[in-house]
């Protein structure tokens, strides 16, 4: 089965992001394909490479990064949601004359067309909030 995930909550403020991560792991472990993970609204904070957490807590952006990379899963942070929250890749950082880069390496910045494409191409779109 081909899945896409829509994640719209921040790992720092609600459980939905962790539920999405656990679902993604379970789906992959059953041999299913994840076509795309789309981070939207506060969900783009899942792709915040600068997130740091206490040692006894899970760093969800880092966990996503490892998972997405290991399984070669595409992930996208919605551009308008990302920029307003300071989630920038090197291109956006340069374009807006900022000094830092904060987007996970495993994730790209792109528009909502990627969410629509995921809805069309996938057999299931599962939304986590």
């Amino acid at each position: 089965m081909k899945f896409s995930l829509l994640v719209s909550t921040s790992p720092a403020s609600s459980q939905g992001a962790m539920t999405a991560y656990q679902f993604a792991r379970a789906a992959v472990s059953q041999g299913h394909e994840i076509y795309r993970v789309f981070f939207y609204g506060d969900g783009v904070l899942n792709a915040n490479a600068l997130s740091t957490v206490p040692q006894d807590e899970i760093n969800l952006p880092r966990a996503w990064d490892e998972f997405l990379t290991n399984h070669n899963i595409e992930s996208v942070a919605c551009v308008s949601s990302a920029l307003i929250r300071g989630i920038l890749d090197s291109d956006e950082s340069a374009r807006h004359k900022m000094t830092g880069v904060s987007l996970l390496e495993s994730t790209q910045i792109a528009g909502l067309g990627q969410l629509v494409d995921a809805s069309i191409q996938s057999e299931r779109l599962i939304s986590f909030a």
């Binding site: 909502l112 629509v116 494409d117 069309i120």
Partner: peptide, 19 residues
Amino acid sequence: SNKAKLVIDAALAAAVFEQ
């Protein structure tokens, strides 16, 4: 909250892609 705007933006994108 920004939820209302998020839904509108996503729907507009879907319309642009002729869904």
